[in-house]
Design a protein around this nucleic acid. Structure first.
Lengths: 96, 96
DNA sequence: CAGCATCCCCATGGATACTG
DNA sequence: CAGTATCCATGGGGATGCTG
């Protein structure tokens, strides 16, 4: 339980992971999906997810720069939990 | 997603909720199951869970005092998520 | 037994500005 | 575009002691 929370418990990690469930996303795309998350925090959370091996970061040596984020196979093992959390929140958010 | 994390995202909430899935527990019992959680933190986390309507607190007017905690029906709606998180953690904790 | 009261620290996270 | 770099505020959480 503590292990799981250490991985998805960050302020924005759940949302980021859920977005990436849908497929690869560029940094800017993620930003648009997390309007309340600062650029700095998005970077930090992504770095932590990368360190935990849940997210893969790919840098394309282009100008302007392009960076894509995607779930690793390990990241995908969280899928059912993420979907469950998302559904629970959707269903009960008004009760909080 | 954010709603769900706001409810189970606390440092000890997941563990507390998981313990209560098994049934009613007294304060002291919970403490023994969370040896790394201070008494103060356990109290605080329980109060928050109570405020969110996930946990019911029953005080028995006895000497010495007895207080029991149990999941509300609303709390039980988290069951599948909690079990999922617990299983994921058990399976992958060594990878972290 | 099951707590509250205090004091305190530091990690988490926010705001803003700058850059290859 | 996709970040760093800095500075700063908040509050989550710890240690300790007291109590009905």
């Amino acid at each position: 339980m503590e292990a799981t929370l250490s991985v998805i418990g960050g302020r924005w990690k759940g949302v980021v992971l859920f977005q990436l469930l849908k497929g690869k996303k560029r940094f800017g795309e993620l930003r648009r999906h997390l309007p309340n998350c600062t650029q700095r925090m998005l970077t930090l959370q992504l770095r932590e997810l990368e360190e935990d091996g849940l997210v893969k970061r790919t840098v394309f040596p282009e100008v302007p720069p392009r960076v894509e984020y995607e779930l690793t196979p390990f990241g995908h093992t969280l899928e059912s939990i993420l979907v469950g959390m998302r559904e629970w929140g959707e269903k009960y958010k008004t009760r909080l």
